[in-house]
Amino acid sequence: MVKQSIFGRISQLVRANVNNLIDQAEDPKLMLDQLVRDYTNSIAEAEDAIAQTIGNLRMMEQDHAEDVSDAAEWGRKALAASAKADQLRTSGQAADADKFDNLAKVAIGKQLQSEREAKTAEPTIASQNEVVEKLKTGLEGMRGKLGELTAKRNELLSRQKLASAQSQVHDAMKSVNVLDPTSEIGRFEEKVRREEAKVIGQQELDSSSLDAQFESLDDLGKQSEVEARLAALKAGS
């Protein structure tokens, strides 16, 4: 049950679609951070459980190898005892021969027992080897997903920082819009224009006053000419 539970959880995590999870999350960064922590913890738990499963499998394999070895050893002992019994029986020592035949039977019984134990363990060992291979594959898949999640989180953080910087630049550009007549620069420009207009008005005013002065001089000149001609007329008469 423990191994099946681990394998099921590994399979579920490996099949997780990161993009779908991000789309459904209210805060993708927080969700990815949590997923990274979950995957990291699950990987650590899976590694411990798989290591224990592999350890148990290797013990079963060692027991199986010992059963096979014991069966072979009991077979050799049975053969040796049977051969000794045949030798004694040939030499006329029937009682001693029977004893060795009995020993051969005991050895054969031990051999059969070891063979049965080895054969009984073989299906379980084969099944456990399959489970271990699936668990290893699942674990590698989880590690791959963890790398994918980490890369996705880092990409998201970079994009978020870039977007924030762009937003700040955009806001700064909006606040310093020289074409906005309500801005400080617009008001200052309007003030300068008024001062320039005032200077132009003063220049026009000064120019008008100077023209009037010259016109008065012209009038004086005309009067002087009249007076001079009048004096000439009188002198000629």
Rank of each mutant, 00 (worst) to 15 (best):
K3C: 05
I6H: 02
F7W: 08
G8C: 03
R9P: 00
I10Q: 15
I22S: 01
I22Y: 00
P28T: 01
L32S: 02
N41I: 07
A44E: 14
D48E: 15
A49K: 12
N56E: 15
L57Q: 08
E61A: 08
D63C: 02
G75T: 07
R76A: 14
S91W: 10
G92D: 04
K105T: 12
Q111P: 00
T120G: 03
T120E: 15
T124G: 15
T124E: 14
I125K: 03
S127R: 08
Q128G: 07
V132G: 04
K134A: 12
G138E: 01
G141K: 03
L146F: 01
T150M: 03
A151E: 13
K152I: 00
R159I: 03
Q160F: 05
Q160A: 13
S167Y: 09
S167G: 12
H170L: 13
A172R: 09
A172H: 07
M173R: 14
S175H: 10
V176H: 14
N177D: 15
V178Y: 10
I185H: 07
G186M: 00
G186T: 00
R187V: 07
R187H: 13
E196T: 08
K198I: 01
Q202M: 11
D211I: 06
L217E: 11
E225L: 14
R229S: 12
L233Y: 12
